[in-house]
Design a protein around this nucleic acid. Sequence first.
RNA 1: GGCUCCGUAGCUUAAUGGAUAGAGCAUCUGACUACGGAUCAGAAGGUUAGAGGUUCGAGUCCUCUCGGAGUCACCA
Length: 617
Amino acid sequence: MSNLISILQNAVTQAVEHLYGEQTEPGKVLVNTTPPDFTGDYSIVIFPFVKIAKKTPDAAAAEIGEYLQGKVAEIKGYNVVKGFLNLEIAESYWQVFLQALVQDQNYGRRPATGQKVMVEYSSPNTNKPLHLGHIRNILLGWSCSKILESVGYEVVKTQIVNDRGVAICKSMLSWVKFGAGKTPESEGIKSDHFVGDYYVLFEQKSKEEYETWQQTALANSIFEEKHKAGQSEKDFFKDFKNKWFNEYSTLGAEVREMLLKWEAHDPDTIGLWKKMNNWVYQGFDKTYHDLGVSFDKLYYESDTYLLGKDIVDEGLSKQVFFKKEDGSVWVDLTDAGYDQKVVLRSDGTSVYITQDLGTAQMRHKELGCERYVYVVADEQNYHFQVLFEILKRLGESYAGGLHHLSYGLVELPTGRMKTREGTVVDADDIMAEVIRIAGEQARERGEIEGISDTERAENLRKVGLGALKFFIVKVHPKKKMIFNPEESVDLQGQTGPYIQYSYVRINGLMQRIDKEHIDLSKFGEYTSIQPQEKDLLVALQEYPNVVWNAAKEYDPSLVANFCYDLAKKYHRFWHDLQVLRAESEPAKAFRLMLSKSVGQVLKNGMGLLGIEMPERM
RNA sequence: GGCUCCGUAGCUUAAUGGAUAGAGCAUCUGACUACGGAUCAGAAGGUUAGAGGUUCGAGUCCUCUCGGAGUCACCA
């Protein structure tokens, strides 16, 4: 289907060349939808051409308008206001557009590019269940994947599971010491929550140990010796906590011992690790399933944490890295505005960024993508800038295709969520809660007649999750979000259910078409398109551009806001105009086709966000 | 302190450098003997943190100031 915007852009380019003898780029011609108070459908901004034209903006606009009206069949009329050329589009164009649209199941999709892109998201630790922050990460990753797919990329959805390290050993040790042989089955607790409880318990026990230790003579003398002038005992011990855990804590020593045993492949430790990680995976699987997301390929940190040694050698031989006297290896990025960065410790072990360098190389060898998207919170912005800069300097072929999709943290009104302090909004809990609220509201509104229990539950699930997902995904990724658990997620106004409801209305009409065998063939005779209908047509026309921009910007919120806008226009249309009891057969047919198109686009658009549409609600 | 990001109505937010800054929530007023009211219409609410600058045109770009966040580990 040819795009009206590009038709207009090309026509303006021709007009400018014909009238003023200057070449311009069609892509740079600014075409906006005309604001409500002016007559017209689309407006061309004329200011960029006034220098070339050597005329006043209005004179140039009128000239170009006259030319366009004569040359472009789609343009019915024009008017000029303050340097803006407002164009009116002919009814016949909208007829053709609507007919093509209603038959095009793939509207908004682009043909395959033959290019691959990897999207990595979620990357959880296996010591606790997923929380609301993970949900944001997952939804961004999932919907970016869907958006990239729809514009023609082959997408490989990956997850790196952080399944090893100190944090994982903490929950393991805690279960060994305090678990008394209990299991998720014996306690009847979802298995990832079970493991998470032992992580929290560890932190409690550790805190108790620290508080007791602070009363000792040793602690006292350390405080006397090391505290800064004017620093209170409380502040000092807050800062000292990491050092205490590494050097004085019994629990800390036991955790480190466990980590060493794990690294030495001690069979008992590995067995314990596998058992507890499997509990966590079972729980994650359930959560991912409930969220409606999946992955194509999993990577485990236990397999990748030793990667990157080769890259250190490579960097040294390419003189991108340098070695210090103590044997540690560094990269100097000060000329790019960053700092010097360690890539290998003096004891020869690798650090976090070394792993990421190695993983990037390995994955490229395996997947061969043109682009790699990492969905990771914005607290790691600096890390990814450095990572990408190093890969660029190493001359990696894919370095230009790396992208960090950085998103703001989800915070509570009281600040950041902290597992240790129990102020975490759990992923499973919030999903259940929002579905419960959907049920509550449905009951207040009155149940649908003759609905089965299973369909009812399925609808509530779609509505509840629709509300939650839309709430998260409508906000620009870069912005931090504050989530107030006291205020339940809204189901009215600018929400998922609002959009779902417009779809349900349309669905009701579509069923009537089938049941009553309504004839749509006369839609072409409808010539008096109403403003409410025009608004919908213009919006539908925009959809492919919206998806394309969302893909370019890695920004699902563009699609979310578009869907809301389209649904809003549909509700208004519904309220103002009659469909089944329209004034004429052609009007009825036209409105039904228009409704069908809106329904399709809404369903597809929301699908890109991972939101399902109920048939009834 | 250096670097990065953010600051739009009471709250949550939208606006590829283009016309009078657009929505939702909350508040107040109205609209169904029904193509489904999880809807629609209206009222009220803004010096786009502040000051300069670039431009025909700035919420958007540049400089400075203020406020908030993140980061600057031989942690991950």
